[in-house]
């Protein structure tokens, strides 16, 4: 049975899609069969980040409505063959999805893939609820600032009360905290919440800390998920996330500000 993982946050712009893309590719590179679903109907982004926007013919809503088969809608990634993308519709809105049909699509996907990664839209409305409803695990993406933490807390409440697992009284959704856009320097200066602060408030296990990095923006614009940039801090941090998701114990990196040596200070780092 496939593991259904929702990448969610409540707040927008914290890095859900970037993280979904990175985690999707990362798991596929480890040899797993992975499908990435864009649940952000009407604000299609995942295809851009994945660099497959020109290959979208049919989308999730077409499949839901029976206008296309899964085979027609799934886009196979050109870099990693075990990864597929199910894009969102850009011309419809979130009401186009309903629980029953989404459940059917996920069931079909579950027969073919090991991991189903659901990229949730922001907010706590129908679209976000749909993305998390069938999840077995949740990666709660949070920026180290109070409003993002508050919204993540709200989403954690929804995971515990509004999901299928909650409604059926099954084992609760396994929750992971993914802290993104982390800047150890700004934490030291007291401008940003620390990892400990966020862990204390949300009280869920930490899956990863992605440092604030220029590489992320560059990767997004190029349609090359940042995890493929193995030189960048963010790429390495996402790699650690994959290892932890697969059950390995990996030490956390990039939590303290680098002390710059005299040479790099002189010549710029």
């Amino acid at each position: 049975m496939a593991r259904i993982i929702v990448v969610t946050s409540g707040k927008g712009g914290v890095g859900k899609t970037t993280s979904s893309a990175a985690i999707g590719i990362g798991l596929a590179l480890k040899g797993h069969k992975v499908v990435l679903i864009d649940f952000d109907i009407g604000l299609r982004n995942l295809d851009l980040i994945m660099g497959c926007e020109r290959r979208v013919v049919y989308d999730f809503v077409n499949v839901i409505n029976g206008e296309a088969t899964l085979n027609q809608a799934l886009i196979k990634d050109k870099r990693v063959s075990s990864l597929s993308i199910l894009p969102a519709s850009q011309t419809r809105d979130k009401d186009a999805l309903n629980k029953e049909n989404v459940g059917k699509v996920l069931e079909d996907l579950g027969k073919r893939f090991d991991y189903i990664i659901c990229d949730s839209p922001a907010g706590i409305e129908a679209g976000a609820m749909m993305a998390l409803y069938y999840a077995d695990e949740a990666i709660v993406t949070t920026n180290p600032e109070v409003s993002s933490v508050r919204d993540s807390d709200r989403i954690l409440g929804m995971l515990a009360s509004r999901s299928r697992r909650a409604e059926l009284g099954l084992e609760p959704i396994k929750e992971h905290l993914l802290l993104t856009r982390y800047s150890p320097k700004r934490v030291e200066e007291g401008e940003m919440l620390s990892v400990e602060d966020v862990e204390d408030i949300l009280a869920i296990p930490l899956l990863g800390v992605i440092p604030e990095s220029q590489a992320v923006l560059k990767a997004s614009n190029a349609g090359e998920p940042v995890i493929l940039d193995t030189e960048s801090d963010a790429g390495k941090a996402y790699q650690d996330v994959i290892d932890r998701l697969l059950g390995e114990t990996v030490e956390f990196r990039f939590l303290v500000a680098e002390k710059k040596g005299i040479l790099s200070r002189l010549f710029g780092g």
Partner: peptide, 8 residues
């Protein structure tokens, strides 16, 4: 037992 989350 457990956290009471924002909004609950």
């Amino acid at each position: 037992r457990g956290q009471i989350r924002s909004g609950q």
